[in-house]
Design a protein around this nucleic acid. Structure first.
Lengths: 352, 352
DNA sequence: GCCGATCACTTAATCGATTTAGTATGGTCT
DNA sequence: AGACCATACTAAATCGATTAAGTGATCGGC
């Protein structure tokens, strides 16, 4: 009755005049009790507002009921991670898991309680990645795990753990290569001849895929790739410089920006170079973000469906957790993306 | 030894040749064991890499060890909440709490396990707010709790719970009135005479404070307030319209935008009206966001120190949880803010 | 009419840590 | 030497749910 004192199974059992075990059977829907008893217990449970104490359940089942999400520390595009995290939460609710966020510092990592880990966009060189893999928990990687770089310290781990960390339990990706090609072809269809790219020096798998795809696309057409970088150190300054360098060439008539910040900078400074975005300068971004629809003109971008992406990560993790023992190969899934066409790539060749 | 099998207190006790109770006393630092035993237990515990099972601890202490954070469903400025949430996590780590995010749907709310709740920017009309307040857990509100509007359904709650929900256990705010005045005065100091505002129709306490402060400021100077709204329904369209309406007046020479999207739209469409941002049109935003530093010119904005804000919310909650029984009045704290001056308010009146 | 099987249920062990109550040891005081 | 007490520890209960093992009753088959 008092909402501060929670109803326990024992109380339900007493009211129903059965043992705690019988009540437990009835509530969990397993055989062993008569239909009469079952309905009675269920009725009383709902009357009393019984909700099982998850802490007790978890202790018994030696699970934590928690899923830990790890996000990159330095992110330029926050909305993606926010949405993806809520996608994880959506799906975690289904399987009765709670979602916790992992701090970026390794302090107290051994205190981390979770049944599994979801890493979004693991960054090469981030020492946390190794620590998390070494925890012995099933890990789902959102976007590919980058190869450890040479200057990374070798993790102090036994051969056994090395072997384990070579594999994640599941992998969810988006087809960045396909969406990059779609954007580049769209540039061409809208009348552009020389697309350039403002890449990111952040060593995440997806950004490397986009850049490599662009370079390959240029190679296929015997075009000289026009690549400028925005780096995490001095992000604003390098973003501005990348924009300036591309526009200074004078030959660029389309720009593919990896980060929303870069696209934004192109939009707002194009006028200084006498360029009109959407007409003689097409602009698109590889990751959509709310801000890209507020600019004038609004910016064409790839909707990575982050919410769905997060849901899929959690759903893969659920399957891994249920499989318990037998999961020899890692589960892999691809989330569909969609290019959102906006005014920044209207171009000169007809409508739409 | 195997990292997948966690070390338990029993194992430590056996290795140290004492009872589990003695080991527990030793580890928790309470009297009742000799110094020799204590050091021995501690040594063995660290050798074995013992970490107490928090699930068991929580069951025993009938706490959950979790803090639940509730974010508004429709947010235009994501980075603020992201940062604030990580601030909560920073501080929660200190007190050994895990942070979970609350889904926006009330489904399964009674299954929510937490020792306390932190609501960020509670929105008037959001039915979740009532539900969360009725849970009987200590609630910290980040920014004031709005008065329930008339058309809100009365919550089905006993008088007792009504009384309780009238009060939150703690309140953390930023001084939006002060920062608004600072921005307006800055406009004037930079040569502006007629500032307008693109307000938000989102009924959150802070946005209402900013708008009210602006109106009062105008009234004090016998100026006619120039207010346009960007509403959540059709955010892009209303944002554009608000910008257009303000610029169409021709009299506006400074614009204060509540959301980063609005500020952005002003920046990118000013040229069409023959205005030069930072010269004959000053622009500032009441909430800083990464995108505001990538535009050209970059936009002056208020840094609300969201990370610190989140930390303070959690620290207040910690105090409430420790106080246990005696906390008659709600704890209140104010987080300092800082205006970040950028090129969009350079103006005509000298340097700065 | 008796054996075995099935059903419906209860008892008790279990998860891992904390904590109360209880016990043995040694020392001090008179 | 016996009473008394503090110290250092152990045994066992506890948190709330799950589940293996056990008990009694009923039923069917031959």
């Amino acid at each position: 009755m008092p909402p501060n004192r929670r109803v326990t199974l024992k109380q339900v059992a007493e009211r129903a005049e059965v043992s705690r075990a019988a009540a437990s059977f009835a509530l969990s829907g397993r055989p062993g009790v008569s239909d009469a008893t079952r309905t009675k217990v269920l009725r009383i449970a709902s009357e009393l507002g019984y909700a099982p104490n998850q802490v007790a359940q978890n202790l018994r089942s030696s699970r934590t009921g928690m899923v830990a999400v790890y996000l990159p520390e330095d992110v330029s595009t926050l909305s993606y991670y926010m949405e993806a995290t809520f996608g994880v939460i959506d799906e975690a609710e289904q399987s009765g898991h709670t979602v916790t966020l992992i701090p970026h510092r390794p302090t107290g990592l051994n205190r981390l309680q979770a049944d599994g880990i979801i890493m979004l966009d693991p960054t090469r060189g981030d020492p946390m990645i190794g620590h998390l893999l070494d925890l012995g928990l099933p890990v789902i990687s959102g976007e590919e795990l980058p190869e450890p770089s040479d200057d990374d310290l070798p993790r102090p781990s036994s051969p056994q753990s090395l072997e384990r960390s070579a594999e994640v339990a599941g992998l969810v990706t988006s087809d960045h290569a396909a969406s990059t090609v779609e954007l580049l072809e769209h540039f061409v269809a809208r009348g552009a001849r020389r697309p350039g790219i403002i890449a990111s020096s952040v060593p995440m798998a997806w950004s490397m895929t986009v850049e490599a795809t662009y370079r390959q696309w240029c190679a296929d057409r015997e075009l000289n790739p026009l690549v400028e970088y925005a780096s995490l150190d001095g992000l604003e300054e390098t973003t501005r410089r990348a924009t300036r360098n591309l526009l200074d060439t004078g030959t660029v008539d389309a720009i593919l920006a990896l980060a929303d910040g870069s696209a934004l900078n192109v939009i707002t400074s194009a006028a200084e170079y006498g360029r009109r975005v959407g007409e003689d300068l097409l602009v698109a971004a590889t990751v959509d973000s709310p801000v890209l629809s507020y600019t004038d003109p609004a910016v064409t971008a790839v909707d990575l469906r982050p919410r769905e992406f997060g849901r899929r990560c959690m759903s893969v993790l659920s399957r891994v957790l249920d499989a318990a023992d037998a999961s020899p190969d890692t589960l892999a899934e691809v989330v569909d993306t969609e290019v959102i066409y906006r005014a920044s790539t209207r171009g000169t060749a007809g409508d739409r």
